[in-house]
């Protein structure tokens, strides 16, 4: 038996908005999130202009962003270490739309930075890294050479820092 017709009725946008009994509802849900002890300390570090990681006493991985526990060894992490604010671009994209899918006037470049943190094999599957904006020309960002490019954090001036991921304005190319 090969099915030729499937059930269901498609509406045009006009038909949908003229349906009897169409109800509009906008739940106004607001949330306040606590960052937890580990990320709170990380955010405090950002306010001081430092990127903090946390080392696993068993496998030696240094987690950035830091965790409370090692995901692989399942043991508590102890040492805090300041890690360099430099790294390489792991991936980068150019966004032309906002969070609500409106067109952006100025496209923005975002991506993942593989930080220069020891404890991982070079080019390994896992690494210490951050998701952030990359301050560079969008057209340049699309070029092949962007992947692997050296970048460094551009910090906000100390008086503007609030203990947020935005205390780093972005990562920018060096050299």
């Amino acid at each position: 038996m090969s099915v030729q017709k499937f059930p269901g009725t498609k509406l045009s946008a006009k038909e949908m908005y003229s349906l009897p009994g169409l109800v509009e509802s906008s739940p106004q849900a607001k949330y306040e999130f606590s960052a937890g002890p580990t990320i709170s300390r990380f955010l405090k570090g950002l306010k001081e202009g430092k990127i903090l990681g946390r080392r696993c006493p068993r496998c030696g991985r240094i987690y950035v962003p830091p965790r409370d526990y090692c995901e692989f060894c399942h043991v508590p992490l102890a040492d805090w270490v300041e890690v360099p604010d430099t790294g390489r671009v792991e991936t980068a994209v150019v966004s032309y739309i906002s969070v609500k899918r409106e067109r952006l006037e100025k496209p923005e470049v975002v991506g993942v930075i593989r930080l220069d943190v020891p404890g991982y094999p070079e080019d390994g599957y896992e690494f210490a890294g951050l998701f952030h904006r990359i301050c560079m020309d969008p057209e340049e960002a699309k070029k092949d050479k962007t992947i692997g490019m050296k970048v460094k954090a551009r910090w906000r001036p100390p008086e503007q820092r609030t203990g947020s991921i935005l205390d780093i304005e972005c990562f920018e190319p060096v050299g």
């Binding site: 949330y31 999130f33 960052a35 990320i39 955010l43 962003p65 994209v93 966004s95 739309i97 906002s98 969070v99 609500k100 899918r101 975002v110 951050l130 998701f131 952030h132 904006r133 947020s164 991921i165 935005l166």
Partner: peptide, 13 residues
């Protein structure tokens, strides 16, 4: 909510 949402990400990113 803490480390990503402040960057105003769109799902497609």
């Amino acid at each position: 909510p803490i480390l990503h949402r402040p960057l105003e990400p769109n799902l497609i990113w």
